[in-house]
């Protein structure tokens, strides 16, 4: 797509905002519509558009597969880690209230935020990884 100058410029301008919006959706999840799933997909959209326009090599350079794999695993681990932390804090598995011994509501906020963050990271990494895997094969 080297010849499509407009697309390249617009994409370059747009991608940061896409990612910013994704971040908003991610962090706003416990107050309004939003959350990890949606945010993760929007994150991935940003990456994928970048890869489509500027070429798969540059996307891989920015996000090497090991990093993505680490993202997939790390997100899941964060999710499960919160669950285990609540276990260790004396609640049942994923009982966020137990995360903060003084204020259960605060604990719930913290818990849901971390959980959704884990989900977001995993979803974004998985979607991008799927895209890269397919695109890279086709490219060869």
């Amino acid at each position: 797509m080297n010849e499509h100058l407009i697309v390249r410029v617009v994409t370059k301008l747009l991608v940061p905002f896409v990612l910013l919006f994704a971040l908003y959706v991610q962090m706003h999840g416990d107050f309004g519509p939003g959350g990890g799933f949606q945010a993760g997909v929007i994150f991935a959209t940003g990456f994928i558009v970048y890869g489509l326009v500027f070429g798969i090599e540059r996307l891989i350079k920015a996000l090497p597969l090991p990093v993505l794999l680490f993202g997939v695993s790390g997100g899941l681990l964060l999710y499960a880690g919160v669950g285990v932390a609540s276990l260790l804090a004396g609640g049942t598995f994923l009982d966020y209230s137990a995360l903060d011994s003084h204020d259960p509501v605060h604990g719930q906020h913290l818990g849901i935020l971390l959980i959704e963050l884990g989900v977001g990271i995993t979803v974004a990494s998985v979607m991008t990884a799927i895209f890269i895997t397919f695109a890279e094969r086709w490219h060869r």
Binding site: L69, F70, V72, S73, G74, L76, L77, A80, G81, G83, V84, L87, T92, F93
Partner: peptide, 16 residues
């Protein structure tokens, strides 16, 4: 809970 959590957590760890 641990019955599920242990292998579930171990899967991504194995991947990294």
């Amino acid at each position: 809970a641990l019955q599920i959590v242990v292998p579930l957590v171990a899967a991504p760890i194995c991947a990294v």
